[in-house]
Design a protein around this nucleic acid. Structure first.
Lengths: 382, 382
DNA sequence: GAGATTAGTTTTGTCATAGAAATAACCCGA
DNA sequence: TCGGGTTATTTCTATGACAAAACTAATCTC
């Protein structure tokens, strides 16, 4: 299984920029691109023609939007001209998705892990990749999101949920599959997805919070993801939200993990009701007005609101994207979230739009696919 | 008094980039610039020669640093080739400083405000500017830092400490002085200074916290200041630091303003001792081991530490710069600061260097001067 | 003093770009 | 229906910024 896809653009430089502009800003006319990139109209003809001839771009239906003048002939990428695979590595299973050039999911697969040994994990990854790759002529690149600490070369420095240390995952997978592979932090991947193709597309500043087994956080400022070697530690997990709240395993009182995680909510509601309930059931009960569940969910919502206020105060985002498997909490406890947010927020400060994603599990895979797309599309940084 | 300075560089583009590189990275050899800007050595000769001939750059003493090969002839800007004025506008007075191209202070002046009426304030500003400008052949640009909300064109939208709303300060001052004027938020200015010429020079990510009458905050991420229309509200002022702390005027318990400001510390120590003490005296008492002062100062230090932890967790900075008139608190309560920071920080997360500035009042002026320098030096953004 | 090494200059050819003018394709009102 | 206004795109050409390569310069090492 070899990578047979043609290169992204024949040459680097302005061609790259034009292609990237079309990839990111969807159908866009030559003149708009010229304005954005500060190029002359003539240059745009010269640059776009070979990209169209190579099959990467196409002219899509004219846009006669009622204005005077010759209608523009917007350009768009052919999403299906390249395919990518994005995977999310979890403690007990691997999720994978086959996507196009815009990270839209074409097919998805998953498989349970037999063990957490790197060899088994790589074999599982390769098996999923093979099944997904069989559906298309070629897969250009593969991205894997891992919750943990990583270096820049795709080595997992530390992933507690797998009990891994210093596993060169990218090169192992690349060898096993023959597909160029990038590995990065799952939250960085998720954030990149929102940045390139998701709800925060085109925004210069936004934050991401995910709810689920843990609390995830990602940040984009000045048009790029803010990442550091510490990304992956989960720095907001023990954020103090409620001085009178429950105690978490590390001994913090009322920290984000003790209030906001699925386990915390399930535990609190189960204890209150004297029977085991699931996460969705807990939210359903709260929505139906059951007093104990309502209280737990509202406390969580208020805590989330305070966390959002903290993020908003320190990073002045234009939007906050909420995601993760547990994101329905935001919907059920929307008033409490707003209330908690108002507590720590100056009334003069502008309202930050809160956007929730579907909470679908393939979200993580799309994020990982974006990593692969970026590795293919972006000028190689040396 | 007219602006007679020559333009920054004859043409835009690569020349700009070379000049900027030299301005920001101090003495630097042609070959280093070529590497940084991805230009060929030949291009560097071509680009640097006219800049040297125009008097902007000079070759400074050779650097034979023991390595083999021909020694480099580092280039540097001539700081005294251009002069700027930076001002800090306060409720009762105006501070001004005359600086060179690197925002180093040549002379400083201050004057009390007769009233807060815009006409009086502008007259005071113009008087200081005239006295400073008399010391040099020409002043290229003038920058003013204001604590409050501003728009992009130098209009003060809201400055509570002056009771101003919608005052077009930049154009008023420009008319009164004849010097091109920019007005911006004082914290943005301070942050730009640290970014361009201060302790955080060259860093890609850092945060700034200032202590004084209020608590200031600034952020640089991905190599640029993160600013929003909300910059200037003072969003960290009511950050919750201590659930059992004192109550601030807005009714928040244990918020940053109620613990960290000079007024809060002075008030707490004075109450405890039953007599009025000043800020420096309160810190002196704490340093000398006086129990009540020690306790107040340590509480403040711990609170500051928790604020720093919050900033560090959400913005993953490479450094935090601490400044403002009250910055000596950090020195006196260093252990408490570290302790507070450790409370909310994952032990696996890397240590963030804390750097304190002098707390000198001209710091704010240098920041404002950097605004003027940037307005002159940066390619005009359209 | 020869060779290695790094810095900077000169020279030359290429190619990307802007600029201008032409063409295309629409709208609108007469 | 036709011509004028308007915007998009193309064609053509001249400029000039750039890289590449060869060369000079100035040091260190052996």
């Amino acid at each position: 299984m070899r990578n047979t896809t043609p290169p992204w653009v024949p040459d680097a430089g302005a061609s790259q920029a034009v292609a990237l502009e079309v990839l990111l800003r969807g159908p866009i006319s030559r003149s708009d691109i010229a304005r954005r990139l500060q190029l002359s109209p003539g240059s745009l003809t010269r640059l776009s023609t070979p990209l169209i001839e190579s099959g990467l771009l196409v002219e899509v239906g004219e846009r006669g939007d009622g204005r005077a003048g010759r209608p523009s002939r917007p350009l768009d990428v052919v999403p299906s001209s390249r395919h990518f695979i994005g995977m999310k590595l979890m403690g007990d299973q691997v999720l994978g998705a086959l996507t196009d050039l815009r990270a839209d999911v074409i097919a998805s697969e998953s498989a349970a892990l037999e063990s957490q040994h790197p060899d088994d994990v790589v074999a599982t990854i390769a098996a999923i990749a093979a099944r997904l790759a069989a559906r298309v002529p070629a897969v250009t690149a593969l991205g894997i999101g891992v919750g943990g600490l990583l270096d820049d070369h795709g080595t997992v420095l530390s992933a507690p949920f797998l009990e891994w240390e210093d596993v060169p995952l990218a090169s192992l997978v690349e060898t096993a599959t023959g597909i160029p592979t990038v590995v990065s932090n799952d939250l960085v991947a998720f954030t990149e997805y929102e940045h390139w193709f998701g709800a925060a597309r085109e925004l210069d500043r936004f934050a991401v919070i995910t709810l689920g087994a843990g609390i995830g956080y990602g940040l984009v400022a000045n048009g790029a993801v803010v990442a550091s070697p510490d990304s992956g530690i989960g720095l907001v997990g023990h954020w103090p939200l409620d001085p009178y709240g429950p105690v978490c395993p590390s001994g913090h009182r009322g920290c984000a993990r003790s209030i906001l995680t699925q386990a915390a909510i399930v535990g609190a509601v189960s204890t209150a009701l004297g029977r085991a309930v699931g996460y969705e059931e807990a939210l359903d009960l709260a929505a139906a007005g059951e007093a104990a569940a309502r209280r737990v969910v509202d406390d969580a919502g208020r805590g989330l609101g305070r966390l959002l206020a903290a993020v908003a105060n320190l990073t002045v985002p234009e939007m906050i994207v909420l995601g993760g498997e547990g994101v329905r909490l935001v919907e059920i406890a929307r008033d409490a979230v707003r209330e908690g947010m108002a507590l720590d927020r100056d009334p003069r400060a502008r309202d930050i739009p809160l956007v929730t994603t579907t909470g679908d599990n393939t979200e993580w895979c799309r994020g990982a696919a974006v990593l692969a797309i970026q590795a293919y599309v972006l000028p190689a940084a040396r």
